[in-house]
Simulated scan of single mutants.
Amino acid sequence: MISSKTVVGVDIAKRVFQLHWVEPDTGEVVSRQLKRDRFLEYFTNRSPCLIGMEACGGSQHWARQLTALGHEVKLMPACWVKPFCGSNKSDAQDARAIWSAVQQPGAKTVAVKTEAQQAVLALHRIRQQLVKFRTAQINGLRGLLTEYGEIMPLGRAALAKGVVAAFERIAERLPAVLIDTFREQWSRIATLDDQINEIERRLQVWHRNDASSRRIAEIPGVGLLTATAAIASIGDPRAFNSGRELAAWLGLVPRQSGTGGRLRLLGISKHGDTYLRTLLIHGARSVLTHSKAPPTWATKLAQRRPQNVAIVALANKMARTIWALLAHERRYQRDFVSKPTVP
């Protein structure tokens, strides 16, 4: 019987799960394998325990299931588990590493998301994949037309205007089978456009029905994609103690390198969610370069430092603002000045 204080490290897989724990009463080290269909059954009749898992594919599902059984689940980022793996790689070694990592003081964990939040992220991932497909199709068509002297203008809208005329010009001297194939390629690009627009329409419906998403969308530079992706990726804002922790989780803080008491700041760490970080940086770039009234501090920073430095600094500020609005359930105020908490 697992006591309430037992810490269990779980290495999940497709079919066989590896468990590792130490019996608190006897000190016995236990390493056990469980089939996938017996995993939940094993924990159903156990006393509540702390279960550590690496944040990977399927971990969110199992975390929700185990939490429903009364257990406490902590999802560990892979970078926090790796230092405890040692030199050899095996399922038993990974489970032991997770067991060690989850007990470390100050260990960072990944928030357990709801199924609705994961559904929104799934829409974002599918849209991102379709955008990559569309870009590949467009670049392929551009390259093929270049072989026949047709240089397409830059930009999606300019390409749409010029490609039909290009087909008519080369149709006079090239085989019909090739021209038909080109037109089919262009038709596939239009189909991808429709699919991407449909996903964005579904995200818009979800966005209108979610108060938190509408609230953070009031921040300059935060649009539909950034707002919905932030709500779904962050999960519970209370998982972060401050806005700076969220910015660090997104990799928007500088890396540090130092020795002998000397500390040197490098470029941003680029840890965490690449997709959400990219959306925030693109939003910050739009505010700084196209907004009629960009933040004064960001404009002054861009005058004395490279523009990308100012853009990342503004993205960092946007991430902190998002956390503040979510954690304190406030509306965005452009001229709001935070005050230190008096103990």
Score class of each variant (00 low, 15 high):
residue 1 M to E: 14
residue 1 M to D: 14
residue 2 I to C: 05
residue 4 S to K: 09
residue 5 K to R: 13
residue 8 V to W: 00
residue 9 G to V: 09
residue 9 G to T: 06
residue 19 L to D: 04
residue 24 P to F: 03
residue 24 P to Q: 04
residue 25 D to C: 10
residue 25 D to P: 04
residue 26 T to N: 10
residue 29 V to L: 10
residue 29 V to Y: 00
residue 34 L to I: 09
residue 37 D to K: 15
residue 40 L to M: 11
residue 47 S to C: 11
residue 48 P to Q: 13
residue 49 C to Q: 05
residue 50 L to E: 11
residue 52 G to C: 03
residue 56 C to A: 05
residue 64 R to L: 08
residue 65 Q to P: 08
residue 66 L to W: 05
residue 68 A to H: 05
residue 68 A to N: 08
residue 74 K to L: 14
residue 77 P to Q: 02
residue 77 P to N: 03
residue 79 C to W: 03
residue 79 C to R: 14
residue 84 F to M: 05
residue 85 C to D: 01
residue 86 G to N: 02
residue 88 N to V: 09
residue 88 N to F: 07
residue 89 K to C: 00
residue 90 S to H: 07
residue 92 A to E: 13
residue 93 Q to A: 15
residue 94 D to M: 12
residue 94 D to W: 00
residue 96 R to V: 03
residue 96 R to N: 13
residue 96 R to F: 14
residue 96 R to H: 15
residue 100 S to M: 13
residue 101 A to R: 01
residue 102 V to I: 08
residue 106 G to W: 03
residue 112 V to K: 01
residue 112 V to W: 01
residue 115 E to I: 04
residue 116 A to L: 15
residue 118 Q to M: 11
residue 120 V to E: 11
residue 121 L to P: 01
residue 129 Q to R: 12
residue 134 R to Q: 15
residue 139 N to D: 12
residue 143 G to Q: 09
residue 145 L to A: 05
residue 145 L to S: 06
residue 148 Y to K: 04
residue 154 L to K: 14
residue 154 L to F: 01
residue 155 G to P: 02
residue 160 A to Y: 09
residue 164 V to D: 14
residue 165 A to Q: 12
residue 165 A to S: 13
residue 169 R to Y: 06
residue 176 A to C: 08
residue 176 A to D: 14
residue 176 A to P: 06
residue 180 D to Q: 12
residue 184 E to W: 02
residue 194 D to T: 14
residue 195 Q to R: 14
residue 197 N to M: 11
residue 198 E to F: 11
residue 202 R to L: 13
residue 204 Q to K: 12
residue 213 S to F: 05
residue 216 I to L: 13
residue 218 E to S: 09
residue 218 E to F: 01
residue 219 I to T: 04
residue 219 I to G: 06
residue 220 P to R: 03
residue 221 G to F: 06
residue 221 G to Y: 07
residue 222 V to Y: 06
residue 224 L to K: 03
residue 225 L to F: 03
residue 235 G to E: 00
residue 236 D to H: 08
residue 237 P to G: 03
residue 237 P to K: 04
residue 239 A to D: 08
residue 240 F to K: 07
residue 241 N to Y: 07
residue 242 S to H: 02
residue 243 G to W: 08
residue 245 E to R: 03
residue 249 W to H: 15
residue 249 W to E: 09
residue 256 Q to T: 11
residue 257 S to V: 10
residue 259 T to Y: 00
residue 260 G to V: 00
residue 262 R to W: 04
residue 262 R to P: 05
residue 262 R to A: 12
residue 265 L to K: 07
residue 266 L to E: 01
residue 272 G to E: 00
residue 274 T to L: 11
residue 274 T to M: 05
residue 276 L to Y: 04
residue 278 T to G: 13
residue 280 L to W: 05
residue 281 I to L: 02
residue 284 A to W: 02
residue 291 S to V: 00
residue 292 K to C: 06
residue 293 A to D: 14
residue 294 P to E: 10
residue 295 P to V: 08
residue 296 T to E: 13
residue 297 W to E: 01
residue 298 A to I: 04
residue 299 T to Y: 00
residue 301 L to G: 07
residue 305 R to Q: 15
residue 310 A to I: 10
residue 310 A to Y: 09
residue 314 L to W: 04
residue 321 T to S: 10
residue 322 I to A: 09
residue 322 I to W: 10
residue 322 I to S: 12
residue 326 L to C: 07
residue 332 Y to T: 08
residue 335 D to M: 00
residue 341 T to G: 13
